[in-house]
Simulated assay, not measured.
Amino acid sequence: MKIKLGTILMYASDLVQTERYYSILLRQKPSFSNQDVVMFDVGGQELLFHQDPHEFSGLLAGLEKESVRGKGIIIHFIVEDINSEYERLIGEGFQISMGPTSQSFGRRQIYLYDCNGYNVVVEQIMA
């Protein structure tokens, strides 16, 4: 039996801002949106943002106070032309934290933090 990756869920402090941010980044509107969630179909993979609870509990206690979220987790989006994407994102007002940078493993990447504090990579796979 083959295992397939399911929905990727990330918490969002502001769903309206998150929807706007990812609509620009991904060049598409959400596949679903309501007052609790915003979902994007990214190449057949569901990326779901859920509104933060007022206060996190259990293992997530205090998450609402963090400015950088998902420590150790970085979401990657693949594009065909990283230089064009870099220029487009700069033009849209995105703050790039690194890049474009060529990596030893055959990828050219830009790093940025999204509006919720998640580390995001936009990359081109080099031939």
Rank of each mutant, 00 (worst) to 15 (best):
K2Y: 12
I3G: 15
K4V: 12
L5C: 09
I8E: 02
L9E: 05
M10I: 11
M10Q: 12
M10S: 07
A12E: 00
A12L: 03
S13D: 02
D14I: 06
D14G: 08
D14H: 10
V16L: 05
V16F: 02
T18M: 04
T18L: 03
T18Q: 06
S23V: 10
S23K: 12
I24E: 07
L26C: 08
L26P: 09
R27A: 15
R27L: 12
K29C: 04
K29G: 06
P30I: 05
F32M: 12
Q35N: 15
Q35D: 12
M39F: 01
M39K: 01
M39G: 00
F40T: 03
F40K: 07
F40L: 08
D41I: 08
G43P: 06
G43T: 05
G44T: 09
G44F: 09
L48F: 13
L48E: 10
F49T: 08
H50C: 07
D52E: 04
D52W: 01
P53S: 10
P53W: 07
H54M: 14
H54D: 14
E55W: 09
E55G: 15
F56Y: 03
F56S: 00
S57Y: 11
S57L: 15
S57N: 13
G58I: 00
L59M: 15
G62Y: 02
L63D: 04
E66D: 05
S67I: 11
S67W: 02
V68G: 06
R69L: 07
G70C: 05
G70E: 06
G72K: 11
G72N: 14
I73M: 14
I73F: 14
I73Y: 12
I74L: 11
I75P: 11
I75R: 13
H76N: 15
F77Q: 11
F77P: 08
I78S: 14
I78V: 08
I78T: 08
I78Q: 09
I78E: 13
V79G: 13
E80C: 04
E80L: 11
D81E: 14
N83C: 03
N83F: 02
N83L: 04
E85L: 04
E85R: 07
E85C: 04
E87R: 13
E87T: 14
R88H: 00
R88V: 02
L89K: 02
I90F: 01
G93M: 14
G93H: 11
F94D: 00
F94S: 03
Q95V: 05
I96R: 00
S97A: 15
S97M: 09
M98N: 13
M98C: 15
G99A: 07
G99Y: 03
P100L: 03
P100T: 04
P100E: 01
T101G: 04
S102I: 10
Q103M: 15
Q103T: 07
Q103Y: 15
F105R: 06
G106T: 01
G106I: 00
R107E: 13
R107S: 13
R108P: 02
Q109A: 10
Y113M: 11
Y113C: 07
D114A: 00
D114Q: 00
N116E: 03
G117K: 12
G117M: 09
G117T: 07
Y118K: 01
Y118H: 08
Y118P: 09
N119E: 14
V120Y: 01
V120R: 02
V122S: 00
V122C: 00
V122A: 01
I125K: 05
I125M: 06
I125S: 03
A127D: 15
A127I: 08
A127E: 10
